[in-house]
């Protein structure tokens, strides 16, 4: 029985490899029929250059650095702003609740590209923002709306008894939040926040339309110089894939770790 299963899995694996191979082969056939000139050997110089034993980043790696800078900055702002929006949305203040609700609805129902143009062409001149700042702020404001929902779910996921007990021992509302509710909601918040970071890095490619030289834009530049459309886009996609996959492993790892610690806490 076991032997049969194993040979069946092996067969399926071979079919899988054959399909992937056929897809790649089909791509090759289709492209050469259109006289596409594959030049993979030309790609590495756009990633890095070695001059007298020192490694210099090529345009693609420089673009990656810009992408990481803009994503990191946007992530920090989104995390802070999202918490603010979540707390306002759950607060006793009616104006706060309306503001939070309105903000989330507006951001969620406008495409990020249009939001970016709105920021770059309308908000940036009013507040004197630069290119990089408007790109980063757009990403931050967009993701903050989703971060707020994550915080809300996390905070609401903490049993009410915890808060009532904290109130009973005399903590103020702010203290209950700071010392009792928020620490316990972290296991609920951190894994989806990692997913948010993944989304943010993916969405950050969109800032290339306002001439920020991130990874996607550097890719476009290299292509317009060399016409290596497939090679460069595949390389760029692979770089994004490596980063997002690493982060999603982190998210799964965090989730598993928290699930385990919760299980052991229950066992105690």
């Amino acid at each position: 029985m076991r032997q049969k299963n194993r040979s069946r899995y092996l067969g399926d694996l071979l079919i899988y490899l054959a399909i992937i191979g056929a897809a790649l082969w089909g791509l090759r056939i289709a492209t050469t029929a259109q006289a596409y000139n594959w030049q993979w050997y030309n790609v590495p110089q756009y990633l890095y250059k070695i001059h007298e034993g020192v490694v210099y980043p090529g345009p693609l790696l420089r673009g990656l650095i810009t992408t990481m800078q803009i994503s990191a900055g946007a992530m920090v702002i989104a995390a802070v702003l999202g918490l603010l929006v979540a707390v306002l949305g759950m607060s006793g203040s009616r104006v706060g609740r309306i503001l939070a609700r309105g903000y989330i609805e507006v951001v969620r129902n406008i495409p990020i590209l249009v939001l970016l143009f709105l920021f770059y062409f309308v908000v940036a001149p009013i507040f004197g923002l630069g290119r990089f700042a408007s790109g980063m702020l757009t990403l931050a404001l967009y993701e903050a709306a989703f971060a707020a929902e994550i915080y809300r779910a996390g905070i609401e996921g903490v049993p009410r008894g915890q808060r009532e007990a904290a109130a009973a021992v005399g903590l103020t509302r702010a203290q209950q939040m700071r010392y009792v509710v928020l620490p316990q909601s972290i296991p609920l918040i951190l894994p989806p926040m990692t997913n948010l970071a993944i989304n943010l890095i993916k969405h950050s490619a969109i800032v290339s339309v306002i001439a920020i030289f991130d990874l996607a834009n550097e890719g476009r530049n290299v292509i317009s110089e060399t016409f290596m459309v497939f090679e460069v886009w595949f390389t760029v996609a692979l770089v994004y894939l490596v980063i997002t996959t690493a982060l999603s492993f982190l998210a799964t790892g965090l989730e598993r770790r928290f699930a385990r610690s919760r299980a052991s806490a229950r066992a105690r």
Partner: peptide
């Protein structure tokens, strides 16, 4: 796991 932009270009 790839940005929509990159996927659409390809």
């Amino acid at each position: 796991n790839t940005p929509p932009l990159v996927f659409l270009f390809i």
